[in-house]
Each structure stands twice: as structure tokens, then as C-alpha cells.
Design a protein around this nucleic acid. Structure first.
Lengths: 215, 215
DNA sequence: GTATAATCGGAGACGCGGCTCCGCTTGTCA
DNA sequence: TGACAAGCGGAGCCGCGTCTCCGATTATAC
């Protein structure tokens, strides 16, 4: 009761935590979200108990793994906002997102699962949506992105690409670029046929994110 | 041993089989593939035992439900091959597929799951792929579809659309048409930027279909 | 109407995967 | 070096969902 509650963990605990994180990253990336905790523990060379002590639920483990990877994308997206060529910046980040998804099956599944990005801590999610949205708006202002798409469309398209990535990855990793090219062509402003239906904004997406599956 | 092995089922058996099929169609459409057998039985007003007598595994039940729905799409696709406007025919069947997917969550999940269409009997699957492929080729010959996409791309795109449908349906059913329009714009021949990567044919897809998940 | 075989229903067996519990081990501090 | 709390591991618990089993029920044939 005399000193502060926080106390540095033991060396082996720190080492194991890192090992679990790395094993999880590796296994989730190849097997996907439905990987078994036991397999992750075995890969890390520890017992299941150890995994669950560091990450009380499987979901928290997924969250930790995905957050790590996503942060770097967010950083890149933030930097891209200052790019002198908004169209190129938009396409680059879009492609980079697809790339991240392509390299990590768990993230692809998570993003494909919904705009809700259930495994991502709320803060990062909103920032990422916001950054993508900003990039889109800037590209539109520069006449490099068709004017009738709304940020919500773009975010959804990413999820759509995530999904195609999931598929094509299994067949031929190079195929991903074909899809990307196809979708980016559909996003170009020249020769675009007007989109039907109503526009949605980010708040609609966030509203949906709150109710991931129910109707 | 005197008469032939086949014998007409009892009247109540036929009635129950039909009820199960209808209940399953209804529940799978709204809840999706992960619907519980017990719920289907309750909806049909029979016991689980009855469901399992008619459809020994859940998978066979799914298969029966999906096959029913898919056959009508196949019929439409076959008819569309004789359409005087190949571009329009292609777009119409593409849209109709998306529509079917949009109305039935189980099919959307199944198609989204992979080009493998795991729940579909092999015959229908190949015919459907073939019909879509024919429509694409004809549209290309008429200059209504960009020349650098290959049939495999189209089949994959359908899966991609299936996925977006899954998402958008929950948010706003009208949104589906926006996606469709976006994708179809990307498929137009004018102003298309050349697609990178190598072309795949249907046999590549079928090869993949044989190994749905493994690497 | 009666015999009989087909069909029904739902309690519960079974397998699977996330998670817990507790006896043993090991890092840390004096 | 010894004492002890922090940390470890993995057998097994628990809830869930698919499917089975068998006594009760009922359509059908004569």
C-alpha cells in the first residue's frame, strides 16, 4: 500500500508478451481471424494460460495485433493529405490500404466484416475514416475523383477491395492490382455515368458501426 | 424385394419437407448462413429430427435452398445470350445477380465466401460461370466491355459485389445500385487504363474452387 | 377397423473452441 | 543465497450448435 499501483512486469513476462504478439501477428495473417488460441500459444512457445493472462480475451489480442499494423497506414494517410497531387495521393493510400489488407488476412476479414471494423479501437477507426474522407474530398476538388461519390462510398469500397483481396490472394497475389485498377477506373471523373441513389456521410457509417449485425 | 426400391413418400412427409425448405429459405435469407437449425425447425413448425431426416446435414439444406434460387438466375443468363444488345445483356445479368444476392443473405455470404460457391452443386456452378463468361465475351466483341478484363475477373467481381451487397444492405438497400454503377463504370471500354498483371481463365478459377481455403 | 411401417419430435450425446484454475517454476530483491 | 511474489502451463470446465436415437404418433393398405 505504500508505493504506486503500477509496477514494472518481470523480464520473462515482457518477453512472453512480445512473443505472443508476434506469433499472433504471424498466425492471424496467414490463417485469419478464426485461428485458434492454442495454435498461437504453441507458435509462441508458451501455454494458453500465458496468452490469456496478457490478453484476457481473444478479441483483445486481435485488437492489439490489428492496431499495430493500422497505425502505420494512418500515419501515411495523414502525411498524404499534404501531397501536392491529391489524385495521386488518394490512389496511393487506397492502394496501400489494399496492400496492407492483402498481406494480412485477419485485417482483410475484419475490414470486410463491415465498415464497423469491430476489432479496432474506436479512436483509430474514426481517424482513419476521417483521413480517407479528407483525401477523397481533396481529390474531388482537384477534379481527380468523380464528384458524385461520397466519402461513405469510398470507405465501403475499401471494404469491398479488402474482400476481393481475400479471394485473389489465394489465387494469385498479382491479381490484386487488376482489381485495384478496375475500381480506380470506376472512380475517375471522366466519362462517369451519374450514380443513382442517395449520398451518405460518415455519420451514417458510424451509426451503422454501432449496430454491426442486427437489422 | 418384389417391387422397385423407390416408393412415394407419405403425404405428411412431403408437406413437412416443403415447409422446412420454405422456412429455411426465409431464415437463411434474413439471418444468413449461420442460422441455427433449431430456429428453422421452429419456424417450419416441426422438430429438429424432421429437418435432419429430410436433409441429413445442414450443408445439404443450404445447398437445396441455394440451388432453387440460383437456377432461375441461370435460366435468365442463358436467355440473355441471345439478346441483340450484348452490353446491355451483360449489365442486366450482372445487376440481376447482385439483386439476387441482395435479397438473400445466405447466397451473398456463400458467393462472397469464394469463387468456390461451396454450397452449390457442381453442375450449376460451372454452367453459371460459363454463362457469365459467354456474356462477357459477347459484350467485349460488341465493344461494350473493356477488352482487357477476362472472364475470371468478371466472376470475381460478382463475388466482390456480393460482398458489398452484404454490407450496404444493412445500411441502405438503395445503396446497392450506387456500387453497381461504380463497378460497371470501371468495366466500360472508353477511357480504360490498361489492367496490370496476368489474365486468368475459368480453369484457374475451377482449380481454386477445388481448394477453397487451404494455401 | 386393424395392422404395420413410415414419420415425427425433442431430449440429450458429442465435438469444438474459448477461457479458467491451481500446483509448479522462476525472476527479483535483500 | 533464501524467501516470496509474479508468472507459467496445460488439463479440463463450460456453453454452444450440430446431429442422433427411440418411444409416440399417424398415414396407408387391406
Amino acid at each position: 500500500m505504500s508505493d504506486q499501483g503500477a509496477r514494472r512486469p518481470r523480464a520473462d513476462a515482457r518477453r512472453n508478451r512480445e512473443r505472443v504478439l508476434e506469433a499472433a501477428e504471424q498466425i492471424f495473417a496467414t490463417v485469419g481471424l478464426q485461428a485458434h488460441t492454442d495454435d498461437i500459444a504453441r507458435e509462441a512457445g508458451v501455454g494458453v494460460g500465458t496468452v490469456y493472462r496478457h490478453f484476457p480475451t481473444k478479441h483483445q489480442l486481435v485488437e492489439a495485433v490489428i492496431a499495430r499494423r493500422t497505425e502505420s497506414l494512418l500515419t501515411a494517410a495523414r502525411a498524404a493529405i499534404r501531397d501536392p497531387d491529391p489524385g495521386e495521393a488518394f490512389r496511393r493510400i487506397f492502394a496501400r490500404g489494399a496492400d496492407l489488407l492483402g498481406r494480412n488476412r485477419a485485417i482483410a476479414e475484419d475490414v470486410a466484416e463491415g465498415i464497423s471494423l469491430p476489432a479496432l479501437p474506436p479512436g483509430i477507426k474514426e481517424e482513419l475514416f476521417g483521413a480517407m474522407s479528407d483525401l477523397a474530398v481533396r481529390a474531388q476538388a482537384a477534379g481527380q475523383l468523380r464528384a458524385d461519390v461520397c466519402p461513405a462510398d469510398v470507405v465501403m469500397l475499401v471494404s469491398c477491395v479488402a474482400h476481393s483481396v481475400e479471394l485473389t490472394q489465394r489465387l494469385d497475389p498479382g491479381l490484386r492490382r487488376r482489381f485495384l485498377a478496375l475500381i480506380l477506373d470506376g472512380l475517375r471523373p471522366d466519362a462517369a455515368t451519374p450514380l443513382p441513389g442517395r449520398r451518405l456521410d460518415l455519420s451514417d457509417l458510424h451509426r451503422l458501426a454501432a449496430h454491426p449485425r442486427g437489422s
